[in-house]
Write a protein that binds this DNA or RNA. Structure first.
Length: 361
DNA sequence: ATAATTTGACCTAG
DNA sequence: CTAGGTCAAATTAT
C-alpha cells in the first residue's frame, strides 16, 4: 500500500473521529443547559453521530483491518471480496431447484466475508425514534425468529432490490431485552443498488413504520388515532356486571374528548378466548357520574394475536397477552385469565398496532 | 392486478 | 440435536 494512500486514509480517520468527538462535546454542552435542549436537537445530534460513525466504519471495513474503537460499531467483517458482478449467467431466480439452492448457499458463504455492523436505535418519546432508522433504503422483510433467551423476536430484512439490482444487503432488527425502546439493527453487506435515497420519498421501511407507531403512542397522537379506530371499528357491549345479555351498540366518546391522558389511558382484559375480548375502562371524568361500575365497558373485539412480536412461531401464549397490556405498577398479573373481570388497570402497550383496523374486525 | 408480510418448513453450522 | 437464518406458499396490503 503506498504512503500517499495511507496518509489520506489516516487523515480521514482522524477527521471523522474528531467529528464524533466534537459532536459529543456539543451534546454534552447542550444537555448542560437542560431547559433549552429539545428532543429534536438530540435527534439531530444522534443522526450526525451515527452518520460519522457509519462513514468511519465503512472506511475501516473497506480499507484497512484496523479494529473499530467505536462502541456503536460492534463488529466489522473483512474486506468485501465479492467483485463478482461478472455477468455470469445466474440461473433464473424463479422456481428454485435444489441446485439453485446450493448456489444460494455458496453466495451466502461469500456473504460472510462482507462487512457487518450493528447500530443501536433508541425510540424517542417526542420524535418517535432516534438514530439512523431511516437509512434511505427500502427493505423487504423475509423472516422473523424467536431467539433463545431474548424477549422479543428478531426480524430479518433484505434489500427490496435484491433481484432487480442484484443487491444482497440484509439487516436484522432485534429489540433490546432490558430497554424496550432500544432496537439493535445489524447490517450485513453494503448496498450495490441505486435507490432514490431521499428519505421523504421512502417513508415505508418496515421498522420505520413500527417505530412511528410507537412514536404516535407516546406523543398522544397515538391516543387520538387509537380512539378514532376504536370508534370506527369496535363495538361496545353495554354489559353490566349483573346482566348477561349483551346489547351491542355503537360507542361514542364525549365531545370534549381530546385524547387519552395518563389517568384515563386504561384498559383491562375482561375475557380471553379465540377472539380476544378486551375491556375498556374510562376515567370517571369521561363518563356520566353514576356508579363506579358504570364507568367500565366491555369492549368486544375480534383481535388477531398477530404481528409486532406477539406471535411466537405461531404459539399463542399468556405472554402474548401481556405484550398487549403491560401491567400497571399496582396491578397483579392474575387478571389475565379467561373470564375474569378485574378492575385492575393495564396500560396499552406501545407495540400493539391499535391503529391497524385489521386487528379490530 | 402487484407488492409486501407472515409464518411454518427447511437448511446448516456448531 | 438445537438455534439461527432463509425460503416460499399463503395471506394481506395497496
Amino acid at each position: 500500500m503506498d504512503c500517499a494512500f495511507n496518509w489520506e486514509y489516516n487523515t480521514l480517520i482522524n477527521e471523522l473521529t474528531q467529528g464524533i468527538e466534537h459532536t459529543k462535546q456539543l451534546r454534552a454542552y447542550l444537555s448542560s443547559m437542560a431547559s433549552t435542549t429539545t428532543e429534536n436537537q438530540e435527534l439531530l445530534l444522534q443522526k450526525i453521530l451515527s452518520s460519522i460513525e457509519q462513514s468511519l466504519l465503512i472506511l475501516k471495513c473497506s480499507g484497512s483491518s484496523i479494529q473499530s474503537p467505536q462502541p456503536v460499531l460492534q463488529t466489522c467483517g473483512a474486506i468485501e471480496s465479492s467483485v463478482s458482478v461478472d455477468g455470469s449467467p445466474r440461473s433464473e431466480d424463479k422456481k428454485r431447484s435444489f441446485k439453485d439452492h446450493q448456489e444460494v448457499i455458496n453466495i451466502s458463504k461469500k456473504r460472510k466475508s462482507q462487512p457487518t455492523w450493528t447500530e443501536q436505535v433508541k425510540v424517542s418519546a417526542q420524535t418517535g425514534f432516534e438514530g439512523p432508522t431511516d437509512d434511505g433504503y427500502s427493505w423487504r422483510k423475509y423472516g422473523q425468529k424467536d431467539i433463545l433467551g431474548a424477549k422479543y423476536p428478531r426480524s430479518y430484512y433484505r434489500c427490496t432490490y435484491r433481484h432487480m439490482q442484484n443487491c444482497w444487503t440484509t439487516k436484522q432488527v432485534q429489540r433490546s431485552d432490558d430497554d424496550p425502546t432500544v432496537f439493535e439493527i445489524t447490517y450485513k453487506g453494503s448496498h450495490t443498488c441505486h435507490q432514490a435515497t431521499n428519505s421523504a420519498l421512502q417513508p415505508k421501511s418496515p421498522e420505520n413504520q413500527e417505530f412511528k407507531k410507537q412514536a404516535n403512542y407516546q406523543t398522544g397522537q397515538y391516543s387520538n388515532q387509537v380512539l378514532m379506530n376504536l370508534r370506527a371499528n369496535l363495538r361496545v357491549d353495554t354489559n353490566d356486571l349483573d346482566k348477561n345479555e349483551t346489547a351491542a351498540c355503537s360507542f361514542s366518546f364525549p365531545p370534549t374528548f381530546s385524547g387519552l391522558t395518563d389517568e384515563n389511558r386504561h384498559f383491562q382484559i375482561s375475557h380471553v378466548d379465540e377472539n380476544l375480548m378486551i375491556g375498556g375502562g374510562y376515567s370517571p371524568s369521561f363518563v356520566s357520574p353514576t356508579t363506579p361500575e358504570s364507568n367500565y365497558f366491555s369492549i368486544s373485539s375480534s383481535c388477531q394475536m398477530n404481528g409486532f412480536g406477539m406471535v411466537h412461531n405461531g404459539h399463542r401464549s399468556e405472554s402474548d397477552l401481556t405484550d398487549i397490556f403491560s401491567a400497571n405498577t399496582s396491578s397483579t398479573s392474575s387478571p389475565i385469565l379467561d373470564g375474569e373481570f378485574s378492575l385492575d388497570h393495564f396500560e396499552l402497550d406501545p407495540n400493539f398496532p391499535f391503529d391497524n383496523p385489521r386487528y379490530f374486525s
